[in-house]
Amino acid sequence: MIIIGERINGMFRDIAKAIREENGAVIQDWARKQEERGARYLDINVGPGSTEPVRVMKWLVEETQKASDLPLCLDSTNYDAIEAGLKVCKQPAMINSVPAEAAKMERVFPMAAEYGAEVICLAMSEEGIPKDADSRVALAMELVATADAYNLSPDTLYIDPLVLPCNVAQDHGPEVMETLRQIKLISDPPPKTVVGLSNVSQGTKNRELINRVFAVMAMGNGLDAAIADACDEELMAAVATARILLNIDIYCDSYVDVFMKG
């Protein structure tokens, strides 16, 4: 599983302040720090309630690229902002995200094809997030089939089964695990999978513990990527260990350091 570093997000106060003051150093600092801690992509989100999402997205991408060569994951519900970001990305990026809704898929998939971007696809529709695995997989199939019509190979898609906080929707947990397993059976090559890790622990105590236990459980069920805090050392150590136990990386005594240093 790879980590998509979540930290460059206007939801965080220091980032919101940096955006307001156009202080690129803060953005660059987080880009560098997350890369050093083992992130493989960097999520870029202008934050909620931004009045100029298009301009800010472009600025964030430019500032981030001054400090890191990692590919970026452009995170917005405003597709014009995503497109503005794609235009200045130095290498193929990831679009975050599109649900299984016709109008949004028609906007996002052609854009992904044009810019050679990967796409995070949400297993939800206008009707919201389904509770059971079968309905989530049905939406994943709809996303894969629609993307195929735009010549996007399934392995450029990251299906997000959508994780809800474990204190309010405890019964979703096993359904998410089942969804992760079934998604690998819907096409050849299969789509990849991703979760927004911190959702699972929203509003709980022990957030970091819940995040990292969920991460390794999901990895055991085939999870490919997580949007997560790359600076959470315990999480990264747990992920590094799961990679060893799943025979993804070759063991050596310094495997945790090696994973974090990339």
Partner: peptide, 10 residues
Amino acid sequence: DINICKQLNI
């Protein structure tokens, strides 16, 4: 030993 091989390189 692949593990020691990697460790030594590190």
